[in-house]
Simulated scan of single mutants.
Amino acid sequence: MASMAVQLLGFFLGLLGFSGTVIATVLPHWRSTAYIGSNIIIATAYMKGLWMECVWHSTGIYQCEIYRSLLALPRDLQAARALMVLSCVTSIMAFIVSVMGMKCTRFARGSLIKSPLVLSGGICFLCAGILCLVTVSWTTNDVILDFYDPFLPSGMKYEIGLAVYLGYASACLSLTGGMVLCWSSSGERSQSSHHRQRNQPSSPPPAFDNIYPSAPRYRPHEALKGNHAPSLCSLSSSGYRLNNYV
C-alpha cells in the first residue's frame, strides 16, 4: 500500500509538471518589456513567446500576432521551440507508461513487467524535466546577456517573463515526480527479489533414497530354518525307524 501511495505521488507530480510545461510552451510571456532609461512608456507592454508576439494596452486589449515563418526566426527561438515540444511529447509518453505500470491499474496485474514500466515512466519524466529546464535556462541566459549589453538600445531590452518562471517550476515538478517513480520502482524490485529469496530453498532437498534407505532383504533366522513338519524320509534318516514302534 505504501508503494502504491508513493507511485501515485510521483505520478501526480509528473502530471503537474507536464501541465505547467504545456502552459509555459503556449504562453507568450517569455520576454516582457523592460522599462529602463528612456523607455518609460507604460501604456503598452510588449511580450514575446515561442509562437507569437503580443502587445498589451493599458485599456486591457491584447493584440497578438503569430510568427508566420519558421525559418525566419532566430536559431535560439527555433531550438527553444523544438526542446519544449520534445519535453511535452516525452511527458505524454511518461504519462502513458506510468499509468500502465502503476499498481492501482489493471494492466498486467501480478506481472513482473509492472516495475520496469514504472521505471521507464520515471525516466521519461526526468528527461522531460531536463529538456524544459535546459530551455528556460537558455532563455534566461539570453535575456540577461541582452539586458546588460551596453550596445543594445533600451527599447530592445526585455526582462524574464512569467512563462519562464512557470517553466522552472514545471521542470522541478517533472524531475521530482520522475525521481519518486524511479525510487518506488527500485524499492519494489528489491522487495520482490527479497521475497523470492525467502521463498526459495537454500539447497535442494536430499534424495529420497538417502533419507529412507531400502529395507534389507529378508533372511530367516537360523533357529527357524528347521521349523517345519518332518517328512517320512526325514524321520528315517534321523536314526529312528517306524517299524520299531509298530
Rank of each mutant, 00 (worst) to 15 (best):
M4V: 13
L8H: 13
F12R: 13
L13R: 14
G17E: 02
S19V: 15
V22H: 05
V26H: 05
I36R: 11
G37T: 09
I42S: 09
M52T: 11
Y67D: 01
S69T: 07
V89Y: 00
S91A: 12
S91G: 12
S91P: 03
V97R: 02
M100N: 06
G101K: 04
C104K: 15
F107I: 15
S115M: 07
S115C: 05
P116E: 01
L119D: 01
I123E: 00
I130Y: 03
L131W: 02
L133K: 06
D142C: 06
I144C: 09
L145F: 03
P153E: 08
S154I: 08
A163E: 00
G167Y: 01
G167L: 02
L175H: 03
G177F: 09
G178I: 03
M179E: 02
C182H: 05
E188C: 08
S190Q: 13
S190I: 13
N199L: 13
S203M: 12
A207D: 04
N210K: 13
I211E: 02
P213F: 03
R217I: 06
R217L: 08
Y218S: 08
E222G: 08
E222H: 11
L224A: 12
N227E: 09
N227R: 07
P230M: 09
P230H: 14
S238V: 10
G239I: 08
L242Q: 08
Y245M: 02
